[in-house]
Write a protein that binds this DNA or RNA. Structure first.
Length: 250
DNA sequence: AATATCGACAACCGCCTATAT
DNA sequence: AATATAGGCGGTTGTCGATAT
């Protein structure tokens, strides 16, 4: 049984989103909330795949997104987490509020990788490059990075890490069942695998003026239609969190 | 000025798991 | 239990602006 396409490919628009499409998507989600992405394009009047809508929203339009380059601190955290988790960008992103997995993945591939190479560090293993040849001979057990080897107990105990654990292969990203055990002694990692997703604690009020959206848009964001490819922060939504939004809603 | 190349990042694709029927 | 579907993930590709030739 082959998996069916997520949407009818015919007549589905691809490529960069226009400001007009963004507006439609924002308007729809503010009015109806996030549910059933498959139905979103039709209901929102978009000739897009539901998946594409979800991606656009989560990676670009969500009001809690930060924009701009990662800070030094964020970058260091990404490096540290990558050393422990491999290419599990969603897990990494979960620890960086306002950042998306896609953004971090891109930043890794375009900036951090090069930075590490320049510093003589292998971006995959996080080992010094000159040790690589020697290491590759003896390194059967899974390319565990130096960070993990240095971790107390959790990763050096009898608990043999799953070889896939750090393989950054596509198949590993859902192998979470034993992860909490594996890392239970590492506070940083263990919290990543808690059931209570930390991002839940960062509840961003999605309090947009759903009822008066058109007015709101016209007054605040209509200039956007002259532009393209700006995030919602560029739209001026930043200020519409707590206080201002509750005022607008009341 | 025109063209080629490169870098950054937005978007897509295909696979996976979870869930509903 | 089998099948269908939605949503999520990571890898890859496409697009576009900047820079070099």
């Amino acid at each position: 049984m082959g998996r069916q396409p997520c949407c009818d490919k015919l007549g589905v628009k691809k490529g960069p989103w226009t400001a007009e499409e963004d507006k439609k998507l924002i308007n729809f989600i503010l009015t109806n909330g996030q549910c059933c992405w498959r139905a979103v394009p039709k209901l929102a009047g978009l000739r897009r795949c539901g998946k594409s809508c979800r991606l656009r929203w989560t990676n670009y339009l969500r009001p809690d997104l930060k924009r701009g380059l990662l800070t030094e601190a964020e970058e260091q955290l990404v490096i540290d987490l990558h050393a422990r988790l491999g290419n599990r960008w969603s897990k990494i992103a979960a620890r960086l509020p306002g950042r998306t997995d896609n953004e971090i993945k891109n930043h890794w591939n375009t900036h951090i990788k090069k930075k590490l190479l320049k510093m003589g560090i292998d971006p995959v293993t996080h080992e010094p490059l000159h040790k690589e040849t020697k290491k590759s001979e003896s390194d059967t057990a899974d390319n565990f990075p130096v960070h993990q080897q240095e971790l107390p107990q959790a990763n050096n105990t009898e608990v043999t890490p799953n070889p896939d654990e750090n393989s950054s292969s596509p198949s590993d990203h859902n192998s979470s069942s034993d992860e909490s055990n594996l890392y239970e002694n590492d506070p940083l990692i263990s919290c990543l695998f808690r059931d209570d997703d930390p991002s839940d604690q960062i509840q961003v009020p999605w309090d947009f003026p759903s009822e008066n959206f058109d007015t709101f848009w016209d007054e605040n964001c209509s200039w956007l239609l002259d532009c393209q490819d700006f995030g919602i922060h560029d739209f001026g939504f930043d200020s519409f969190n707590d206080v201002e939004m509750s005022n607008l809603m009341n």
